[in-house]
């Protein structure tokens, strides 16, 4: 079986991991247009190259980041998300609700 190196747990069978999508910047939900939101949610370059993506080690509930080639399936690097994200990101769900007015 293919082995992936978990930054927390070490080398494990790929079946212990769940793919979590490409790492990409989320648009501001309060100010972005529907088209921008659709682009974030549905659209993707989806091409052949090394991509940076979220992965989840299911038995330990641990999210991390991997750099993987989308054709050779070679995993070049895995690391803790703290290397890219150094602070907590809060989503202002309540203000979004207020902004939503009945049509």
């Amino acid at each position: 079986m293919k082995i992936m190196n978990c930054p927390l747990n070490g080398p494990r069978n790929i079946s212990e991991f769940v793919y979590g999508g490409e790492v990409k910047a989320m648009p501001n939900i309060l100010t972005c247009t529907d088209r921008e939101w659709a682009d974030y949610v549905f659209y993707s370059e989806n091409t052949i190259r090394v991509i940076t993506e979220w992965w989840f080690h299911s038995p330990s509930g641990y999210w991390f980041i991997a750099e993987r080639h989308t054709a050779t399936d070679e995993i070049f690097k895995t690391y803790d998300p703290s290397e890219l994200f150094n602070q907590r990101i809060d989503f202002e769900a309540t203000s979004a609700l207020e902004a939503e007015k009945p049509v």
């Binding site: 494990r12 212990e16 299911s58 038995p59």
Partner: peptide
């Protein structure tokens, strides 16, 4: 500690 799969179930 090993956080892994035991008998196909996630386990610690």
């Amino acid at each position: 500690i090993a956080q892994t799969s035991v008998a196909r179930t996630n386990a610690i």
